[in-house]
C-alpha cells in the first residue's frame, strides 16, 4: 500500500485487524481485508469459519471488539443508515419478506436510498436493467413469497443491483441457483466491478470463486489463512488443511478447478477422512445460526 489515508481516502472497503466476539466466543481474530474499486474478492472457507460474521462486520451490522472497518475511507460507525445505503449494497443469505410484495416492488426497494435525489429520475430504467441482468423481468408481477428459492435469490440480487452503490457485498448469492444462473450472476457481478465497484462475495464453490474473483480470501477458524490471486491461493496443500478434506486442484484452460477426493467405496469404514460427515452437519448448523 503506497498511498496514505491523509492524502487520498482509500475507496472501497477496508477492514483493519478486525476481531469480533459473539456471546464471549471469538468468531473473528485479527482479520485484515482490503477491497478496492474494480475488484471482486471472494470470501471462502469451511462452515463456521466466520465468513458471514466478517460480512456483518463489513456492513456495520456487527460492532468489532477491536479493529476498524472503513467504507469509502470513513469508519462504518460514522455513517447514518441512508448515507451508508448510498455507498454499499448487501445481499444477505436470508431474504424472506413479510407480506406478499411483488417482484418489481421488491427490486424498487433498492432505489429507496436515492429517493428525493436527482438520481431517482432514473429509477424506472435502473430497475428494469437490474431485473434484466438478474433474469427476473418475466416474474415482475409475481408475489415474492410464492417464488422458488432461486427466483427469490435472483430478485434480491436485482434489488442489490438497483441500489447502484460503489461497494457491493454478497453472501452466498449462488447457493440456490442453477448452473446457468450461477454463471450469469457472477458474470454480472464482474461487470459491476468492471464499472468501478468494490465487490465482496462469499462463495462455497471454489471453482466458481477461481473463475470470477480477482482475489480469494480464505478464512479458517476466524482468521485469514490466505489472501491472493486464485492461482496462488488455491493449492492442494492449503485447501486440504483448511477444509480437513483431501482435494485436487486441476488446471482447466488456465482456471483452477477444485475437486474433492472421494474414496472409491464410500462406507462406514472410510479411514481416509476423519469423521467427515458428522463434522459437516455440526458445522452447518453453526453457519446457519451465525447467518441469522
Amino acid at each position: 500500500m503506497t498511498r496514505t489515508a491523509d492524502v487520498i481516502l482509500p475507496a472501497g472497503l477496508l477492514a483493519r485487524s478486525v476481531s469480533v466476539e459473539i456471546g464471549g466466543a471469538r468468531i473473528l481474530a485479527d482479520v485484515t481485508l482490503q477491497v478496492e474499486p474494480g475488484e471482486v474478492v471472494a470470501l471462502v472457507g469451511p462452515n463456521g469459519a466466520g465468513k458471514s460474521t466478517l460480512l456483518a462486520a463489513l456492513t456495520g451490522d456487527v460492532e468489532p471488539a477491536s479493529g476498524t472497518v472503513e467504507l469509502q475511507g470513513r469508519p462504518t460507525a460514522s455513517y447514518r443508515a441512508k448515507e451508508a445505503a448510498r455507498q454499499r449494497a448487501v445481499l444477505l443469505q436470508k431474504y424472506a419478506i413479510a407480506f406478499g410484495f411483488d417482484v418489481r416492488h421488491v427490486v424498487e426497494m433498492g432505489r429507496s436510498p436515492w429517493y428525493g435525489t436527482a438520481r431517482s429520475d432514473e429509477d424506472d430504467v435502473v430497475v428494469r436493467r437490474a431485473m434484466r441482468h438478474a433474469d427476473v423481468l418475466h416474474l415482475s408481477e409475481r408475489s415474492f413469497p410464492t417464488l422458488s428459492g432461486g427466483e427469490q435469490a435472483r430478485t434480491s440480487f436485482a434489488r442489490v443491483l438497483a441500489q447502484e452503490t460503489p461497494v457491493v457485498l454478497l453472501d452466498e448469492p449462488t447457493a440456490a441457483l442453477d448452473i446457468r444462473h450461477q454463471e450469469s450472476l457472477l458474470a454480472t457481478t464482474r461487470d459491476v466491478a468492471r464499472a468501478g465497484a468494490a465487490v465482496v462475495v462469499v462463495l462455497h464453490d471454489l471453482s466458481l470463486a477461481a473463475a470470477y474473483a480477482d482475489r480469494i480470501c480464505v478464512l479458517a477458524r476466524g482468521r485469514v489463512a490466505a489472501d491472493g490471486p486464485p492461482s496462488e491461493v488455491l493449492t492442494e496443500d492449503l485447501l486440504t488443511v483448511v477444509y480437513q478434506h483431501p482435494v485436487r486442484v486441476i488446471d482447466l484452460d488456465g482456471s483452477p478447478l477444485v475437486v474433492p477426493l472421494r474414496a472409491p467405496h464410500r462406507g462406514l469404514a472410510d479411514h481416509d477422512v476423519p469423521d467427515e460427515t458428522t463434522d459437516e452437519t455440526t458445522d452447518e448448523t453453526t453457519d446457519e445460526t451465525e447467518a441469522r
Binding site: 448510498r86 431474504y95 426497494m109
Partner: peptide, 21 residues
Amino acid sequence: ARQLDLLALGDRAARHVGVEV
C-alpha cells in the same frame, strides 16, 4: 409508509437500504 415497506425486508436488509430501523 415508504419506510414501513422496506421493513418487510427484515431488520438488517432494511438498514442496508437506508432505514434507521
